[in-house]
Design a protein around this nucleic acid. Structure first.
Length: 261
DNA sequence: AAACCGGGGAA
DNA sequence: TTCCCAGGTTT
């Protein structure tokens, strides 16, 4: 849930979720549609499907117990390098190299002397982090969470509080006079009128409706909620419904659509 | 390497 | 408005 979503927004959903499905087997036995519905407005609803798929895989491959080693974790749906490393370290105390957006920023500043890391994780960054993480598993887990929290709470993307940073005296960025970001302007993702927004509106409409929703009603929803009208709306709704079906987030039922049973 | 995938809250 | 968030998958 925390992939690209702030923890503060995740927490309430996470609590309700674990109350409803305490174990992987519980989640694996649930329908995809109910899982997407419970995901609510966390965004990236494909994560909900992958989380359920991961629960199925945990039941099938690991007797219902979440594996502790990074390689097995990495093989689960929706689990990439970051999540595998984080679970191995924080849930199981294994030594791993956790490189999230916070760690990247701390290392970019403290070590490389840059205001912000590059847009995408590079191999050089991963190698750098690997050389810094302590060898001892317990200390490694502590290092990982410490650097992550430092980035989240002190060494923030905007408005870092260098005054209360324990690395102040050793920070290459501060030593260089805290220069501004020298990279190209970060392009914000377009949003209004995009397929992303339309897909979101469609899934939201289907979350709120237990019964299948006819296509004309979905088009009216997109028009009223997003202000998209006319032939472009029809075309875009068609395209988005097709992609949602392709993703397994939506199920066609005769001339209507619903979350997958 | 680049594109695609949501949504909300703070600045 | 813009920015940014405990990233992953596909091409």
């Amino acid at each position: 849930m925390s992939q690209q979503t702030p923890v503060a927004r995740v927490e309430p959903v996470w609590r309700t979720w674990l109350e409803r499905w305490p174990t992987p087997a519980d989640l694996a036995a649930e329908s995809p549609g109910e899982v997407v519905r419970a995901w609510g407005r966390l965004g990236y609803p494909r994560r909900a499907l992958r989380l359920r798929d991961a629960a199925v895989a945990v039941v099938e491959r690991h007797a219902g117990e979440v594996p502790a080693d990074e390689e097995s974790l990495r093989a689960l749906p929706g689990v990439g390098a970051y999540t595998a490393a984080a679970v191995a370290a924080f849930a199981f105390g294994r030594r791993s190299v956790v490189v999230d957006t916070n760690v990247r920023r701390v290392l970019a500043r403290a070590v490389e002397g840059r205001a912000l890391p590059s847009p995408a994780l590079t191999a050089a960054e991963s190698r750098l982090a690997a050389t810094l993480v302590p060898e001892d598993p317990e200390r490694a887990a502590l290092w990982n969470v410490a650097v992550m929290e430092l980035g989240a709470l002190v060494c923030r993307a905007r408005g870092p509080e260098c005054d209360r940073c324990p690395l102040l005296d050793r920070c290459a960025w501060v030593a260089a006079g805290s220069p501004p970001d020298d990279g190209p302007a970060r392009r914000g993702q377009a949003w209004h009128g995009t397929d992303r927004q339309v897909r979101g509106a469609l899934v939201q409409a289907l979350r709120e409706q237990a019964d299948p929703v006819p296509r004309p009603e979905l088009e009216r929803t997109v028009t009223s909620r997003l202000g998209i009208v006319g032939a472009p709306a029809v075309e875009q709704v068609d395209r988005c419904l097709a992609s949602l079906v392709e993703d397994g987030l939506v199920e066609p039922v005769e001339d209507a659509f619903r979350l997958p049973a």
